[in-house]
Structures are given as structure tokens and as C-alpha cells.
Amino acid sequence: MKINKNVKVLLVGAILTLTVSSLVGCGSKSEEVPKSNESTTQNQEKTYKNISGSEAEKIMKDSNDTLILDVRDAKEYNEGHIVDAINIPVDEVEKRIDELESFKDKTVLVYCKSGKRSITASEILVKNNFKDVSNVEDGVSEYEYDLVEYTDLTASQFEKMISENSDAIILDPRDKKDFSKGHIENSINIPLSEIESRLDELSKDKPVLIYCNVGRKSAEAANILQNNGFSKVYNAIDGVKEYDFKLVK
């Protein structure tokens, strides 16, 4: 009987020891559970990416939904800029940020002459909640981009130009079928393939505002006019399939 009592005592002691150890262990593990990283995410600093000229060209080639922002001064821009790039000088970006509102959720590539002013502009965009901003480190003096001299405009800037220039020629270089489905009021239709043979129908003394479906044909048309001595040429980078222009038939 004594042996049995001792055995019982030992068993009870062992059970108590295991139970206490288990409770202590659980308490230790609960303390080691990592805390939520929510605060880390919330405090994570918003920033922009730095990309090379070749990387920028690839993005421009692969995407039709990218804003290219040239932050040099107007004189530098007019001497030659990347195709489809709009111009807002770096010291005007902050006060003209509303003009870029529709691009907050889109990819924005920012460039200048040497990559310095574009850093400042990129910081301004990020501060104003633009989500996908890339600073192109290779400026136009450091990389061999294909440059043009006509002026590229966003759709809203294009509409403003129309309203402020009653004598402007509004040129639609789409085919006749697309034009008949709907076009900007007072625009004339000269299909892209016919522009060079019908240049005499346009005036070099008036602004020529060009648009199309997605900005490709209008860019080609603008280049043709530029190469033929037209100096007041404006291309809409957003076409009628991308922006809600008021159209007539």
C-alpha cells in the first residue's frame, strides 16, 4: 500500500508539473506572436521610382495609358520633346496639379534635361498622391530620344485651346467612316493618308489642333505638318475613345 501511495504522489506531482509548464509555455508563445504590421504600412514613406532612358522608352512603347511629363521650360520644350509629352515647367507643377488630376492612378513618367528638375517634380506628384511616378534619370541631353517640336496636350488642355482660339483649324485625320460616327464640332476631316497631298487646305498662320481615336494618327499628322513648315501645331494625346469629348455627327 505504501508503494501505491508513493506512486500516486509521484504521478500527481508529474501531472501538476506538466500542467504548469504548459501554461507558462503558452504564455511565452503568446508574447512572441508578432504584432500587426499595419502601423509600418501606414508609416511607410511614399516615393517614386528612378528609371533609365531605355526603361522609359519600353514603358512608352508598351503602354497607351501613360502620362509623359516634361518639366523643362517652354523654350526647351519647343526645341524638341519626347513624343506625347506634355509640358508643365517644374516651378508650375504645384499650382497646375489640377490639370493632371485624371492621371493620379496612372503611370506618370517625368523627365527634364539632366534628371534634376524631374526629381523635384516627382516629389511634388508623390506628395499630391500620384500613385505610380517614375523619374527618368536620363534627360534629353543624356539619352538619344526621338524628339518632336509640335505641342502635345491632354484632352482638357485641348478643349481649352479650342474654346480660346475661335480661328483654330480642328483637324481629324481618321478615316471618313470614323469621322461620320462622331467628331468634334467644327473639325475638318482629312484622312492621314491624304494630308501631304492636301496641305493647301490648311493655313500656316492659324493654330492647327489635331485629334483622333487614341492619339496615334494625330501624332503622325502633327509630325507631317511640322515637317512641312507648320509651326502652330497641337496634338491631343487623348483621343475620342479615351476621353469624353462632346461629339457631333
Rank of each mutant, 00 (worst) to 15 (best):
M1V: 13
K2F: 11
I3K: 15
N4V: 12
N6P: 00
V7Y: 13
V9H: 14
V9G: 10
G13R: 09
T19C: 07
T19P: 00
L23A: 15
C26G: 04
T40H: 08
T41N: 12
T41G: 00
Q42C: 13
N43V: 04
Q44K: 15
E45N: 14
Y48D: 03
E55C: 09
A56W: 09
M60Q: 10
D62R: 08
D62E: 10
S63G: 03
S63D: 14
D73Y: 00
A74M: 05
E76P: 03
Y77T: 10
Y77E: 02
G80F: 08
G80V: 02
G80L: 06
H81Y: 01
H81G: 03
I82M: 12
V83G: 01
V83A: 12
I86P: 08
E92L: 15
E99G: 07
L100F: 14
L100V: 15
K106V: 10
V108T: 11
L109Q: 06
K113D: 04
G115D: 00
K116W: 02
K116N: 09
S118V: 03
A121S: 12
S122R: 13
V126K: 07
F130D: 05
F130M: 10
V133S: 11
S134Y: 14
N135P: 07
V136I: 15
V136F: 09
E137S: 08
D138S: 10
G139F: 04
V140A: 04
V140P: 00
E142G: 06
E142N: 10
E142H: 11
L147H: 08
Y150A: 04
T154R: 13
T154E: 09
S156P: 03
Q157K: 08
F158S: 02
E159N: 15
M161T: 01
I162F: 01
S163E: 10
N165Q: 09
I170G: 01
L171F: 07
L171Q: 05
L171A: 07
P173C: 07
P173F: 11
D175C: 06
K176P: 04
S180I: 03
K181P: 03
G182A: 12
S187A: 13
I190Q: 05
P191T: 04
L192R: 06
L192T: 01
S197N: 13
D200E: 09
K204H: 05
P207M: 01
V208F: 00
I210A: 08
I210S: 04
S218K: 07
N223H: 08
I224L: 02
N228T: 08
V233K: 06
A236K: 02
K241H: 13
L247A: 12
